[in-house]
Design a protein around this nucleic acid. Structure first.
Length: 103
DNA sequence: TGAGTGACTGTCC
DNA sequence: CGGACAGCCACTC
């Protein structure tokens, strides 16, 4: 197993998250077959090129919150993309129970 | 070479 | 509900 192996799997899992649904970093890692590799998922997204068509905005942390400072451009961008798909925010949190994707 | 860091998490107070 | 903590692993000094 190499780094490229799970990065590729994370990519695939994320690509399969349905519109209007979300998954946590841990979920993505587990679905890809690498439980406890949440951080690796984060790294994966961090390295994503701007022009990738990966729905990276559907991935959030276990608290149901975005992993960016709330006053950052990234936060606003991700939140807008999610709301555009019908994902509801309660203050700064998402109703995970309602939108969490079960592969 | 080793310590610090980070788009993280589950468990245990 | 929140805070501390130990796993986790590639990357950067």
């Amino acid at each position: 197993m190499t780094q490229a192996d799970y990065l590729a799997k994370f990519w695939m899992v994320i690509a399969h998250i349905p519109k209007g649904k979300v998954a946590t970093y841990g979920d993505v890692a587990a679905m890809a077959g690498y439980p406890r590799m949440a951080r690796a998922v984060g790294r994966c997204l961090k390295n994503l090129p701007e022009d990738s068509n990966l729905p990276w905005h559907r991935v959030l942390n276990a608290k149901g919150m975005l992993s960016f400072p709330q006053d950052s451009a990234k936060y606003r961008q991700q939140r807008q993309l999610l709301e555009a798909e019908g994902v509801l925010f309660q203050q700064h949190k998402i109703a995970l129970a309602r939108h969490r994707w079960r592969g």
